[in-house]
């Protein structure tokens, strides 16, 4: 019996994971979300900004991480648009160009934000650090036109926005090391306020920067997105997906406990023999 538990066929585990995903999706269960301090700090910062402020959001991720990061982007953009805060979107990752555009369009549609007036999407430019540093001199020098090839000089929202001096916050939605580059090069050199929304796997890397306030706020994985949705009182994709994540986490938790209980019983039996 113990041996069978220890050597359970991995296909059975795959089926259990599939069920843990499918059942909560069909039942549409939801759980109360506890708000963490780093997410609240970001929310409070946006709440305290006066309308007409400008934030820059960098969609530095590809399709593999969009399940976690896209809901963060949508929730954050909704909050900004509701508060009449202007948003500049861009990406340092090739695949992020289309994803960022879609996210901005989706948030704009639900809040009535107008392209060129309430938000501008600049798209992608190659050269991560050079792009960051170049924007510190003039944004226009790096992005001469927006994603739809409209010159920045003809976009009303960009009037008076030259570089980071006119930007109140940069939010980096990242699945790799771009947040650390934003902190190292832009926070340090330009004293620019930076916040981040990152995937669950890299969240542990961000805490030293949070303590030193080089990051003013942080959304951690899908949970961070669900927390932000709760804060703006608009439960959406992340809140729904959190129920699925909850069941899968619970399943893995149970499997690890079961595996270890079986391991210890077998170990004791072997010692007695």
């Amino acid at each position: 019996m113990l041996k069978q538990i220890m050597q359970i066929d991995r296909r059975i585990i795959f089926i259990l994971v599939a069920l843990a995903v499918i059942i909560p999706t069909l039942l549409k269960v939801s759980f109360p979300i506890t708000i963490s301090e780093p997410t609240r700090k970001l929310y409070d910062y946006i709440e305290d900004l006066p309308s007409g402020s400008t934030v820059l959001i960098a969609f530095d991720y590809g399709p593999s991480s969009m399940a976690e990061l896209q809901p963060m982007g949508t929730a954050f953009l909704r909050h900004c648009f509701q508060k009449k805060i202007r948003v500049i979107g861009m990406t340092l990752v090739t695949e992020g160009a289309t994803l960022g555009y879609e996210t901005m369009q989706e948030a704009a549609k639900t809040t009535g934000a107008i392209d060129g007036v309430d938000y501008v999407y600049l798209g992608f430019r190659p050269g991560t650090i050079q792009v960051m540093l170049g924007m510190g001199t003039t944004i226009n020098n790096i992005f001469e036109s927006d994603y739809k090839e409209k010159p920045l000089a003809e976009i009303p929202m960009m009037e008076g926005i030259k570089n980071y001096d006119q930007i109140d916050l940069i939010l980096d939605l990242a699945s790799s090391s771009t947040t650390e580059a934003w902190i190292t090069y832009i926070n340090t050199r330009y004293n620019q306020k930076i916040a981040a929304g990152v995937t669950g796997v890299i969240i542990s890397q961000m805490y030293p920067y949070l303590q030193t306030e080089q990051l003013i706020g942080l959304m951690s994985g899908l949970l961070g997105a669900a927390e932000y949705e709760t804060l703006i009182e608009t439960p959406a994709k992340a809140t729904k997906r959190m129920s699925v994540q909850s069941f899968v986490h619970l399943l893995v938790f149970g499997l690890v406990i079961l595996g270890n209980v079986a391991f210890f019983i077998q170990k004791r039996e072997n010692e007695n023999v």
Partner: peptide, 14 residues
Amino acid sequence: ALIVMIGNAPIGDL
């Protein structure tokens, strides 16, 4: 790992 994992899911608190 188990604490972080279960703390990362609202069902843990519930």
